[in-house]
Design a protein around this nucleic acid. Sequence first.
DNA 1: TGGAATGTTCGGCT
DNA 2: AAGCCGAACATTCC
Length: 283
Amino acid sequence: MPELPEVETVVRALCPILTGRVFGRPKLLRASAAEGSPEPLSRLTGRRIVAVERRAKFLRLRLSGGMNLLIHLRMTGRLSVRPWPAEPGPHDRAVLPLRGGRGKKNIGGEALLFGDARTFGRLHLVRERDLGELPEWKKLGPEPFSLAAAEFTARLRTQKRRLKPLLLDQTFLAGLGNIYTDEALYAARLHPALEARRVTAAKAKTLFKEIEKVLRAAIAAGGTTVSDFVRPDGSEGLFRRKLRVYGRAGKPCRRCGKAIVRLVVGGRGTWICPNCQKPPHAP
DNA sequence: TGGAATGTTCGGCT
DNA sequence: AAGCCGAACATTCC
């Protein structure tokens, strides 16, 4: 569920809390929560957090000494800053103690907690110079907010794949997941199974603008909470109320009143308005 | 009770 | 090679 807007929400919440603080000795509660071996997070201790950033759906903590802590929340990962020591919750996977207090006073006794019910999320400590060799990092496509509409259109034109799996492909465009892909396709009145290269230039531009629009609106709402996502302070993202198709099977389309339907496209649950998003017709 | 859901990678098939 | 599909990962939810 965490897609670009949710990760951006987490980054914005954590940035003022974490920047400038120094990690203590990490405690890995579940070995698979961190990449690398034999002690994947051992080089974290003593590093200062220089910056908190987002790239695609990764959080990136830039650390002193040319290190980076990459965090991918996958489906149910969540981050919070909590008093420490304390009894870890059943789904807490890693505890990263923080030295130095918020503001100038050293109040101590806090940690960055990585919780993850379904345990697909990952922490990955990577040297700056090794980042370029990480396939899941280096293969990432452009950020939607750093891309020109014309460039997006040109990229679409080369693709024979259907829109839905294409937009979900992080190497084509970084940051979209199931929710915002469906919302953007609906807004642009495009069917998810339409072959990308058959989208007209005008429609492609509309799609790109709608992608940026829905992402921007979702960031402003603090992301979408469907079931798992929460902000670092425990509050919910409010964009769920603004969803127009995702998860709304049977409910009326807000544009034409026809019932929203659920399809499977590229193996993923996909919601559309059958009236506003006409299926691709055979040649 | 078990099928669906979520993001990503991978392997097999066409 | 490109694209599609399903499997796998682990767990919760209904």
